[in-house]
C-alpha cells in the first residue's frame, strides 16, 4: 500500500524540530525511515505530520575519545559498519552490525532510529543496553541524558517524550583487548532474530573475570542484561559450568511468543545464543558450534 496523506516538515535545527513536535498533533520523527516507512506504507502508522530530521546538521557522526565514544543519532548503520575506528575501540559493533537488516537498509537506517523504534529483536539497542550507554535527548527544556536502564520502557517504547528528539548515544569503551561475542538466530540472514545475545568480558592475567556484561535480545519485549550472572562471575573463570549458568538464566526469561516462534522455543534459543556469545567472548572454540 501507499502511505496515508501527511504534511511534511524538514526542520534545519534541533530547536525547530522540537518546536514542530511540541505544536503539531500526531507528528512523528522521520530518521532513516527503515521502520517508520514500512509501518506507514502498511498503514500501521498514519501520522498527520512527518518531521524529517535528515537535514538537521550535527546529528550524524562518530566522536571517539579515550574514555568516551559518542555516536550521533543520525549516523547511518552503514557508516558504523565501515568505521575502522569504531571496530578498534568497540569491536562488538562490527560483529553486531553485520546482522542489522541488509545492505540496502543499513545505507539509510540510523542508530538513533533503531533506539527510538525499539524493536525487541533490534541489535543496536541491545548493544546500548550491554554498554550502559547514555541517551542524549533534546526537548523544549533543553538537553537531558537518560541512562540505558531507564531508556527501555517496554515493547516499542523508549523514555523519549513525544516532543523530544534523540541527538546522540554515548558510552565508555571497554579496555583494549577485552573479549566480545555476538550471536543471533534468525530464520534467514537479516531477518528479525528469534533471539540474540552479546557478551563483553574483561579478564586479569590469571584468566579470572574482572568484569562481564551479557545481554539477551528478542526474547523479552526489551533487551535484558543477565545482571545476577554478571555479578556472580566476577573473580571466577568462564568455564562450561559458568556458561550453563548463564544459559539457564536466559532460559528463565519471560519470553514472547508469536505465530512463528513460540515462547518455549524462544527461551531455548535464548539459552543457546548466550552460550555461543560467552564462548566467543572467552575465546573458547569460536562459539559457533
Amino acid at each position: 500500500m501507499k502511505a496515508a496523506p501527511f504534511s511534511y516538515h524538514a526542520p534545519q535545527s534541533v530547536e525547530d524540530a522540537v518546536g514542530l513536535l511540541s505544536t503539531l498533533e500526531n507528528a512523528r520523527v522521520l530518521a532513516g525511515g527503515q521502520s517508520l516507512m514500512p509501518m506507514m506504507n502498511l498503514r500501521l502508522a498514519a501520522p498527520d505530520h512527518l518531521v524529517d530530521i535528515n537535514r538537521v546538521p550535527g546529528l550524524a557522526g562518530l566522536r571517539i575519545g579515550a574514555g568516551r565514544i559518542e555516536i550521533g543519532a543520525m549516523t547511518r548503520q552503514a557508516d558504523l559498519l565501515a568505521s575502522d575506528d569504531l571496530a578498534a575501540a568497540a569491536p562488538i559493533f562490527r560483529a553486531a552490525l553485520k546482522h542489522v537488516g541488509h545492505i540496502q537498509t543499513r545505507a539509510r537506517g540510523t542508530i538513533g532510529g533503531s533506539c527510538c523504534h525499539l524493536d525487541p529483536a533490534a541489535e543496536l539497542p541491545a548493544l546500548c543496553a550491554l554498554l550502559d550507554a547514555q541517551f542524549e535527548a533534546f526537548g523544549p527544556n533543553g538537553s537531558r541524558a537518560v541512562a540505558a536502564r531507564d531508556w527501555f520502557r517496554g515493547y516499542l517504547e523508549s523514555a523519549l517524550a513525544e516532543n523530544e528528539i534523540l541527538c546522540a548515544i554515548g558510552f565508555a569503551p571497554w579496555p583494549s583487548g577485552h573479549g566480545f561475542g555476538f550471536h543471533e538466530v534468525a530464520r534467514r540472514h537479516g531477518d528479525f532474530a528469534v533471539a540474540g545475545a552479546a557478551a563483553l568480558l574483561a579478564r586479569d592475567e590469571t584468566g579470572a573475570t574482572k568484569r562481564a556484561a551479557v545481554v539477551v535480545f528478542g526474547v523479552e519485549p526489551a533487551p535484558v542484561r543477565l545482571a545476577a550472572f554478571e555479578r556472580a562471575i566476577v573473580g571466577r573463570t568462564i568455564d562450561e559450568a559458568a556458561i550453563e549458568a548463564a544459559s539457564e538464566a536466559a532460559r528463565k526469561l519471560d519470553a514472547m511468543g508469536d505465530a512463528h516462534v513460540g515462547a518455549d522455543h524462544r527461551r531455548r534459543i535464548g539459552g543457546v545464543v548466550v552460550a555461543r556469545a560467552l564462548r566467543e567472548a572467552a575465546g573458547m572454540n569460536g562459539g559457533a558450534k
Binding site: G33, Q34, M37, P38, N41, D52, Q104, T105, A107, R108
Partner: peptide, 27 residues
C-alpha cells in the same frame, strides 16, 4: 512489497544501494 522486505525497488542513492520504497521522493 512496498515495505522494505523484497528489495525489488533497490536503486543506488549517493553511491549506496537503498530501498526506494522506504524513501520519500522529497528526501
Amino acid at each position: 512489497c512496498e515495505h522494505g522486505a523484497c528489495g525489488a525497488c533497490t536503486v543506488i542513492v549517493d553511491g549506496r544501494p537503498a530501498r526506494s520504497c522506504l524513501m520519500l521522493a522529497v528526501q
